[in-house]
C-alpha cells in the first residue's frame, strides 16, 4: 500500500536541449513530517516540486503524493495538496479577499463555508485589515502570507512550499516559520519545503535532503547530517601571542590540531568525551589568558561542502557566473 506521505523513485526531468534538471531522485517523506529540500539556485528543487505537485510530468521515474500517483492520479493529488510556489502567482487586480473567494471556488468548497473559511485564513495570516486592498499594493511579505492562506483553503493534508521565505525580512520570515511549524504540529500537515537558507532548514525541518545538480547528495535530520561530517572545532587566540606554543600543547590533549584563525590555535575535538568546558578548564589550569575563544559546530553548509566540494554560497555564485555570458 503506498505511503500517505511522499514516495519517489528515480524521478527524472529533462528539458529541451538535454538540460537535466532532476537527475534521478528517490524520496521518502513520512506523514506529518516537515521535510526540507536544501540546495543552491538551479539545483532542481523547484522542478522537483513542480513534478510532485502535478504541474510538470516527470521524464522518468515515479512518485506518489498522499498515496496517489502524480502522473495518473493528478486530480486526486491536487485535492490532497496545497502549494505556495516560488513566484507568489497572484493577480494584482484582485483583492486578497477576492483571491480567497476564487480559490475556495476552485476547490469547490460548499458555498456556506467559503466566506467563514476565507475570514479565518485572513485572520490567521494577519491580513484581515488589508483583505479588501488590491494585491498590487501588498508588500512581499503580505503576498507570501496570502499565498500561504490560499494554499490552505481546502485544508490540505500536505503542503508544498517552494522557497517560501526568499526575499522576506527577518520578522516576516520568523512569522512564517511559526505558522508552518504550527500547521505540522497541531494540524498534522505534511510539509515539503524547499529552501536555500541553511538556518531555515536547520530550525524548521525534521529531515533535510541536500540537492545539488539534480541529485540528492545527503539526507537525514539536521543533527544527523552535521554529525555525519565531523566534530566541533575549538579555536583559541591567546592574549599574549608569544604563548601560542603553550596553548598548542594544551589543546593537543583534546584532539588533532587544525587550521586556525590568525594568531590562534585550533583543535578538532576527538570523540564525544571532550567539550568546550574541558578546554576552558585546561587553559585556566595552565594560567593561560585568552583573547578569543570560539566553538565552531558543523553546519549544514559544512555538510554541503563535504558532499559537493563547494559551499552553498559558492555554488550560488557558480550558478550566477553560468548565467552571465
Amino acid at each position: 500500500m503506498p505511503s500517505k506521505g511522499i514516495e519517489a523513485a528515480g524521478l527524472v526531468r529533462e528539458f529541451k536541449g538535454g538540460v537535466l534538471a532532476v537527475a534521478g531522485i528517490d524520496l521518502h517523506v513520512a506523514e506529518g513530517e516537515i521535510y526540507g529540500f536544501l540546495g543552491p539556485n538551479g539545483a532542481g528543487k523547484s522542478t522537483t516540486v513542480h513534478m510532485l505537485t502535478t504541474l510538470l510530468p516527470p521524464t522518468a521515474g515515479r512518485a506518489t503524493v498522499a498515496g496517489f500517483d502524480v502522473v495518473h492520479e493528478g486530480p486526486k493529488v491536487r485535492k490532497a495538496i496545497g502549494a505556495a510556489l516560488q513566484e507568489a502567482a497572484l493577480d494584482p487586480i484582485l483583492t486578497g479577499r477576492e483571491h480567497l473567494r476564487l480559490q475556495t471556488a476552485l476547490h469547490a468548497l460548499p458555498r456556506e463555508e467559503r466566506k467563514p473559511r476565507s475570514d479565518e485564513l485572513l485572520e490567521r495570516v494577519g491580513l484581515t485589515g488589508a483583505a479588501d486592498r488590491k494585491v498590487r499594493t501588498y508588500s512581499g511579505g503580505m503576498k507570501r502570507r496570502l499565498d500561504l492562506a490560499l494554499a490552505l483553503v481546502h485544508r490540505p493534508r500536505m503542503l508544498f512550499l517552494d522557497e517560501p521565505t526568499t526575499g522576506l525580512d527577518v520578522q516576516s520570515r520568523s512569522a512564517l516559520w511559526q505558522e508552518v511549524a504550527r500547521l505540522a504540529k497541531e494540524d498534522g500537515v505534511t510539509v515539503f519545503l524547499t529552501t536555500q537558507y541553511l538556518e531555515e532548514a536547520d530550525v524548521l525541518c525534521d529531515r533535510v535532503g541536500i540537492i545539488d545538480q539534480g541529485k540528492i547528495v545527503a539526507e537525514g535530520s539536521p543533527a544527523e547530517l552535521k554529525a555525519s561530517i565531523g566534530r566541533p572545532t575549538v579555536d583559541v587566540v591567546p592574549a599574549d601571542h608569544e604563548q601560542r606554543d603553550r596553548v598548542s600543547a594544551v589543546l593537543a590533549q583534546f584532539g588533532e590540531l587544525t587550521q586556525a584563525s590568525p594568531h590562534g590555535v585550533a583543535v578538532l575535538l576527538s570523540g564525544d568525551e571532550f567539550g568546550l568546558a574541558d578546554v576552558v578548564r585546561a587553559l585556566d589550569a595552565e594560567g593561560l589568558h585568552v583573547e578569543h575563544l570560539q566553538l565552531h559546530a558543523p553546519s549544514l553548509d559544512d555538510v554541503f561542502l563535504a558532499q559537493t566540494g563547494r559551499t552553498l554560497e559558492g555554488a550560488e555564485q557558480e550558478q550566477q557566473t553560468e548565467l552571465v555570458p
Binding site: 505537485t53 502535478t54 504541474l55 486530480p75 486526486k76 491536487r78 485535492k79 495538496i81 502549494a83 510556489l85 513566484e87 502567482a89 497572484l90 493577480d91 480559490q103 476552485l106 476547490h107 490560499l150
Partner: peptide, 14 residues
Amino acid sequence: EYGFARRLMLAAPH
C-alpha cells in the same frame, strides 16, 4: 506568462 495559470492548474482537479 505571470504564473497565475499555475495556481489555477494546481487547484483545478480537471
